[in-house]
Design a protein around this nucleic acid. Structure first.
Length: 528
DNA sequence: AACCACTACAACCGCAGATCT
DNA sequence: GAGATCTGCGGTTGTAGTGGT
């Protein structure tokens, strides 16, 4: 074949860069003659100076027949969003359900769409599309390649292999469809700082939970009999049960360009700072711990932990008293230092959990079982600010030493429960918008992490399985308890036995029970 | 007209699983 | 069974086009 010089690379190297029409013609001709596959032989037999991968890509994305060209139709866009909500960044699988579209096309579309919506401060998913953790995690870990990969662990299902690992891990935290149990939780300590969530507890002790939710989406709590926001957006399912059904706690997404939510009864202020890997809205926090503890009233500016916020959420904005809120520091930071160590690529090695491993190397999972269990119960009670009874806490933490030994990590239990209650109580908004000068912020990591570091005997974090059976109750039991705990009108706490014998109490959401805890009036400005 | 920011798209790269030798 | 090769996937980068200043 008499080939034009343009298709040749210089000095025998394979050509890179844009394909020419001549090259396309050669490739098409070759594939028509020999069929797809065996791409590495294309170069040998066709004279194209392109590697096999390049040929395959060019064919698959541009030359193969039946490719649809042009912009996505609204239907296709809708399908993509729905598929992404279910599959996460599984472009090839998405493409399989969109005839004529390529994975690359869908990926490009999605990535640009994400950027656009993030800039606009819009949620990535429309309100009527429930999102799974599998999809959420794709944002959460977007820049995890900076050396802070989460710990590895065996995937329990083949479909979670390789690149699914990160999403799978977050699924465990956030309750995606891939995780059978939403409170089968990855250790919080292994997460980079992605959110800082604070609220004010009824007893002056707040709690928060890492919230790897969407960037720049403010979760506000739904309207309730106790007042709250005027938001009326679709609920967000953040848990999913083993049968595939979802457990919705109805926090809502605030999408208006600007909104002020005044909480005049029971709502407690929550603060969420999304960070780490969400360019361009990265928060270079000093450390990468998942959670930070902060006592109320100590919202101290600190240049080293400046927050970069999008658009109007300027980190330099000041509150009504003129106090800059450009940063957050914590006198309790030392408590969370362990989490930072766990997350940093530091002297403990590339695997952050080595630190935990080192701390626990001498211990046995069931050693000091009773004391640890008591401590966990106390922690759970503290984290939920008494919103559950000691009986319930005890049940949740569990009594079965064997199961603890099997689970290898009793922390998983409390972290899971903490996340549940924390999430239920969450009301996230940007930190610069808390109007209350003395807003008290308190996050739970210090407690949890200090507990994990000093008291809990367990395995390395990466050894935590995809699903961690709760120490004391089954998944169903726990969800039932959640229902119980969130019942609208529970005059007093039943014991678990009474509850179960009663066959359960209907509820609307866990949030409601939180509403029973009085809190001062707080105005939260969601300045979108 | 020049510059800049942004978007959309094409292509490359690294990795991992599958298959072949 | 082990190594080599192929293939596919997802992340990232490069670039052309476009619109605003």
């Amino acid at each position: 074949m008499d080939l034009p010089q343009e298709i040749f690379a210089d000095a025998g190297n394979l050509k890179k860069g844009p394909w020419t029409s001549t090259e396309d013609a050669i490739l098409v001709s070759y594939v028509n003659k020999h069929g797809e596959g065996n791409w590495n032989s294309v170069q040998k037999h066709s004279g194209l100076y392109r590697c096999g991968k390049s040929c395959r890509l060019r064919w698959a994305n541009h030359l193969r027949p039946n490719l649809k060209k042009g912009a996505f139709t609204p239907d296709e866009e809708r399908t993509i969003v729905e598929l992404h909500s279910k599959l996460g960044n599984k472009w090839a699988r998405m493409a399989a359900q969109l005839p004529g579209r390529t994975d690359n096309e869908i990926k490009n579309y999605w990535n640009t769409r994400i950027k656009r919506r993030m800039r606009a401060g819009l949620p990535v998913y429309p309100m009527d599309i429930p999102k799974s953790a599998a999809s959420l995690s794709q944002f959460y870990f977007k820049q995890e390649d900076d050396g802070r990969k989460m710990g590895t662990r065996a995937d329990s299902e083949s479909e979670f292999a390789s690149s699914d690992r990160q999403s799978h891990q977050l699924s465990s935290l956030h309750g995606g469809h891939q995780a059978r149990s939403f409170y089968s939780i990855m250790s919080i300590t292994d997460l980079p700082l992605t959110s800082v969530v604070a609220n004010q507890g009824s007893a002056g002790v707040g709690k928060g939970i890492v919230n790897p939710s969407l960037p720049h989406i403010k979760r506000v709590q739904h309207s309730s009999p106790y007042g709250g926001t005027d938001g009326s957006h679709g609920s967000v399912s953040f848990s999913q049960l083993s049968d595939g059904s979802s457990k919705t706690f109805q926090p809502e997404l605030c999408t208006e360009a600007s909104r002020t939510c005044t909480h005049n009864s029971t709502r407690r202020p929550m603060m969420s700072v999304f960070a780490d890997g969400l360019d361009p809205y990265t928060v270079p926090y000093d450390g990468t711990c998942g959670l930070i503890s902060m006592p109320f009233g100590s919202f101290t500016p600190n240049a080293s932990s400046k927050l970069e916020l999008p658009l109007s959420q300027s980190a330099e904005s000041a509150d009504s008293a003129g106090t800059p809120r450009s940063a957050i520091t914590s006198p309790l930071m030392s408590l969370s230092r362990s989490s930072q160590l766990l997350s940093e690529d530091d002297s403990f090695g590339s695997n952050a959990s080595d630190f935990l491993d080192a701390l626990m190397k001498e211990a046995h999972p069931t050693e000091g079982f009773d004391q640890v269990r008591t401590d966990l119960i106390d922690q759970l009670l503290a984290l939920t600010a008494g919103n559950i009874s000691p009986d319930v806490a005890a049940l949740l933490v569990g009594t079965d030493k064997t199961r603890w030994a099997e689970n290898m990590n009793p922390m998983a239990t409390i972290e899971a429960h903490a996340s549940v209650y924390g999430e239920g109580m969450s009301q996230n908004c940007c930190p610069g918008s808390l109007k209350e000068p003395g807003t008290q912020c308190h996050l739970l990591s210090g407690e949890v992490l200090s507990l994990s570091a000093s008291q809990v005997a367990g395995p390395r974090v990466e050894d935590i399985p995809a699903e961690i059976p709760l120490g004391g109750c089954t998944d169903e039991d726990f969800l039932t308890l959640l229902d119980f705990a969130s019942a609208d009108a529970v005059p007093e706490w039943y014991t678990p036995a009474e509850y179960f014998s009663a066959g359960g109490i209907p509820c609307s959401s866990l949030v409601d029970v939180i509403d029973n805890v009085p809190s001062p009036e707080v105005a939260v400005d969601l300045d979108y």
